[in-house]
Design a protein around this nucleic acid. Structure first.
Lengths: 203, 203
DNA sequence: GACTTTAGTCACAATAAGTGACTAATTCGC
DNA sequence: GCGAATTAGTCACTTATTGTGACTAAAGTC
């Protein structure tokens, strides 16, 4: 782990020792989002730094809990501070134990949801400590996007977005030139207005 | 109507004559999407040309049907062919009768979902007849996006996307030069690969 | 035929992105 | 101490993409 997204699974004793996504039934008077934050709390002892609903899944077949539909959420926690409680284990997102088809598609949609929101919410910034180097930030984006980015392009885009400001501190990482530390401090700026896009390939 | 999105509401007699989004309870063995297509069929006599789940809503308060959570979908139909059955009425998306807060947020998310998918699925093309003029296509995009587009930019982007091909037919709309007709016929092309974007403004 | 209206295209400017090469500051091996 | 290696940070140049006004084309109106 550390340079790849992970997925937290739990081994359900009731179901022939299969791994599954952590879940819990809703409690009365609670929003779905609050319930899903509670799942994270129970599993890791802390809430996610970001969470979003993936969608509702229901096809007539019932969930073990006897619920007719399952509502999936994706949340993120920084790996360092997130030590799983007993019964929970981290797996690499791309190499986890077999899941039911429904859960597998939830995991796939989770990745897509993260990557689609990355340019709309400061997800990467909240996964990092309050101060960070630009290389750390870039590595976080690369981890989340699952692809390499060009250093100059990344920094140019970051600069144009007025999202970080340098602080008067440097950090030496052993070898190489020390890196300046930055802090997330978004400034007001005009919303980029783009025209149409036709990004779909097939009907 | 005709140059704005509409929302189809139904007047529920049970609930003090309030307008509400069309809904129905799920039937066993049916996916959520199939159920929502059935809602459209019952209301308009035809299925939507595109449909997508908006999300699940649940906050402890129950829906009139006694369901604990509601799963909302957004679907589109061309206005011309979609004549509502008794009890259903079209309203302009931006000026409809008061709804419950939950339903109001569903309507808002519906608009955002449409606009967010417009560049990823040929929604606009399916709302038009098989052959259409480029001005009609542009007007459809403008209607769905809720903003004006520049003619030259629109056509340039369309050309780059290899999505339409001209047919050997022209249509005269009364005054002005006759417009050439086009048909939707997407060609293979390489997926555009973009770098990072930082499009969010606030934490 | 002059004027209006809609279609369709062009050319140029402005922005944004991709990319390699460069300079800077440090550690490591010797 | 000194050069190689390593990481940070920036520059300059190229290429793509987008915004935009102006232009030409083909019809109808009067």
């Amino acid at each position: 782990m550390g340079n790849e997204l992970g997925v937290l699974l739990t081994r359900s004793s009731s179901e022939r020792e299969r791994w599954s996504l952590p879940w819990r039934p809703t409690q009365g008077g609670e929003t779905l989002e609050a319930a899903s934050i509670r799942v994270t709390q129970d599993a890791l002892g802390e809430p996610p730094i970001w969470i979003e609903q993936i969608g509702a899944f229901g096809d007539g077949k019932r969930h073990p809990s006897d619920a007719e539909i399952s509502v999936a959420f994706v949340g993120l926690v920084p790996h360092e501070t997130a030590s799983p409680r007993a019964g929970y284990t981290w797996f690499p997102m791309g190499d986890h134990p077999p899941l039911t088809p429904r859960q597998r598609s939830m995991v796939e949609m989770a990745t897509r949801t993260i990557q689609g929101r990355l340019d709309q919410a400061p997800i990467a910034f909240r996964l990092l400590p309050p101060t960070f180097t630009l290389s750390e930030l870039q590595q976080m984006y690369e981890l989340l996007l699952g692809k390499r980015l060009h250093k100059a392009s990344f920094r140019r885009a970051l600069q144009a977005a007025w999202l970080v400001e340098p602080i008067d501190e440097w950090r030496s990482e052993g070898r190489g030139r020390p890196a300046q530390l930055f802090r997330y401090s978004p400034k007001k700026r005009r919303r980029p207005h783009r025209g149409v896009r036709f990004d779909f390939l097939y009907p």
